[in-house]
Structures are given as C-alpha cells and as structure tokens.
C-alpha cells in the first residue's frame, strides 16, 4: 500500500465517506422511503440528498479555500448548515 501514499487525514476522510455510505444503505434497507419533490423541483431520496450534500460540500470547501484561505473548520460549519438545508428542503 506504500505506493498509494496513505496519510491519516486522507484515510479518515475516506473512512467518513465509507461510513456515511454504509449508514445510508442500512437506512434505505431498514426504512425504505418514497422519493419526494423539493425546492429544486426534482425527486430525491435520502441517498440523492447525501450526494448533493457531499458534492456541494466539496465546492464550498474549495470556494472557502480560494476566497478566505486555509480555515477549513469554518468551511465545515458552512457545510453542516448546507447539509441541514439540503436534507430539509431539497
């Protein structure tokens, strides 16, 4: 695995995403849901909203890095607010 140049932060990053995927898969099996129509006028399930959250969070972090600089904890707070909004209204 040396060639993959693993570091603890990147391992933690991927572990978090993997854990999220597992949790949402279990949720989808245990508590199936019907897609709903949100503010984007598209039908979304929990999985779709997770995808929108993760992708949007990546862009929020990049925008923060470009405009504010390396202050990622603050960007993560914005991401959490964004995630809440996505799960509530999208």
């Amino acid at each position: 695995m040396d060639w993959m140049a693993w570091t603890w932060p990147t391992a933690a990053f991927f572990a978090t995403i993997a854990a999220l995927l597992v949790v949402f898969t279990v949720l989808a099996i245990r508590f199936p849901e019907t897609p709903r129509m949100g503010v984007l006028r598209i039908e979304t399930t929990r999985g779709d909203r997770l995808f929108i959250t993760l992708l949007g969070s990546a862009f929020i972090n990049l925008a923060w890095l470009g405009l504010v600089g390396q202050a990622q904890p603050a960007a993560l707070i914005v991401c959490l607010i964004y995630a809440g909004a996505v799960f509530r209204w999208v």
Binding site: W3, M4, A5, T7, P9, T10, F14
Partner: peptide, 9 residues
C-alpha cells in the same frame, strides 16, 4: 484515492 493522497503531499 491515490490522487487524493497525492494532492495533500
């Protein structure tokens, strides 16, 4: 994953 690892080093 390897690219992500490279991007921070």
């Amino acid at each position: 994953m390897t690219v992500v690892n490279y991007s921070v080093q």
